[in-house]
């Protein structure tokens, strides 16, 4: 159940020592059981999940901004309705995820405050600008493609409300990737030379940031081992990144674009593509607030929150009034 009351019952607290609770929890994880909101869980498990799920939710919400930039300028009514549906989906995904995080005992306002104050992170990819219409297609193909690769294993996350939210997200996300590829393919096969150049330029700009979406290399990802142990994470960053590169290399051929990596080539002995080094200095710079659009994104979210204040208050005042009317 998606509610936020998380305290263990007094009965259980009395019956078991913490060590025993911890052992029972670990045993359930080992057995592949799902953990539900009211089940006992270690404080660190709860904290890790609040961080991960809320950051995931923030990413969905901030992720509406780069594409929202093109809603009024989509080239056709068809592309505009598709893009509207996609951006609405991102809002929905953010809401599913905030709800899942709330089951862990954090409030929506606390999460919003963490985002707007800059304490909470969101996916670094959304701090890059959408300079041309082709960027919208490339976001669908590469960014949503990377997101799907990250998210599918999360449908088996040990924390059940997160897993359930991810099932719904993944079901909807597949349309996002396909519409992006479809938009790019249309430009590549039926477009002008200028449109094909625009697509290639967008691929050049988004390729490396997309690879960064899988997070730092396994060697520099200190929290990964514990998250894997707890079934919060199912695959390592490098493993998923490799899978993504292998998939995209083939898709790029179908599309007729070149991925901007001279080192990208099939390695027969590994049965996988070799690829060049990611610029991790850039990744950390963007994560830590100094990407091309960090300030703009946060300013947009802050303004939305401030501008919406009167709506939130008016709706609540209306609800109170209606209740009093009914009581009278």
């Amino acid at each position: 159940m998606y509610t936020q009351a998380m305290d263990i019952g007094p009965a259980e607290a009395k019956r078991h020592e913490p060590a025993e609770l911890e052992a029972r929890f670990e045993a359930r994880i080992d057995a592949g059981d799902f953990i539900e909101p009211k089940d006992w869980m270690p404080a660190h498990y709860r904290k890790t999940l609040v961080r991960q799920i809320s950051q995931h939710a923030h990413s969905e919400i901030v992720g509406m901004l780069p594409e929202g930039n093109w809603l009024t300028r989509a080239p056709t009514l068809k592309r505009k309705t598709i893009l509207l549906a996609k951006v609405q989906d991102e809002a929905g995904h953010g809401l599913y995820l905030y709800s899942a995080a709330e089951t862990l005992g954090t409030s929506r306002d606390q999460m919003t405050e963490a985002l707007l104050s800059g304490r909470a992170k969101y996916s670094s990819i959304f701090n890059y600008p959408t300079l041309a219409w082709a960027d919208v297609g490339v976001i669908g193909w590469l960014v949503d493609g990377a997101a799907i690769m990250n998210q599918v294993p999360l449908t088996r996350c040990s924390y059940a409300p997160y897993a359930r939210a991810m099932v719904r997200v993944c079901r909807e996300e597949s349309f996002h990737q396909r519409q992006g590829f479809d938009a790019l393919l249309t430009m590549m096969t039926q477009g002008t030379e200028a449109q094909r150049t625009m697509v290639q330029d967008a691929v050049d700009r988004w390729w490396w940031p997309s690879l960064m979406m899988f997070g730092p290399p396994d060697a520099d990802s200190p929290n990964s081992a514990q998250s894997m142990r707890w079934g919060i994470k199912r695959n390592s960053n490098d493993e998923l990144r490799q899978k993504f590169v292998d998939a995209c290399a083939e898709q790029a051929k179908v599309l007729g674009v070149t991925l901007p990596d001279p080192d990208l080539k099939w390695n027969e002995s590994r049965g996988a593509h070799d690829f060049g080094a990611v610029d991790w200095a850039e990744f950390w710079r963007v994560v830590n607030g100094d990407g091309p659009c960090n300030r703009e994104r946060l300013a947009a979210r802050s303004q939305a929150w401030d501008d919406g204040a009167w709506v939130r208050d008016a709706a609540l005042a209306h609800a109170h009034k209606q209740r009093h009317k009914e009581a009278a």
Binding site: S107, D109, E113, A309, L316, H320
Partner: peptide
């Protein structure tokens, strides 16, 4: 850390129920 911004009046800043 509840309230995000100083809010002016009434029920300002209250979260909608779940």
């Amino acid at each position: 850390s509840g309230l995000l911004r100083p809010q002016a009046t009434g029920s300002a800043g209250a979260e909608w129920p779940l």
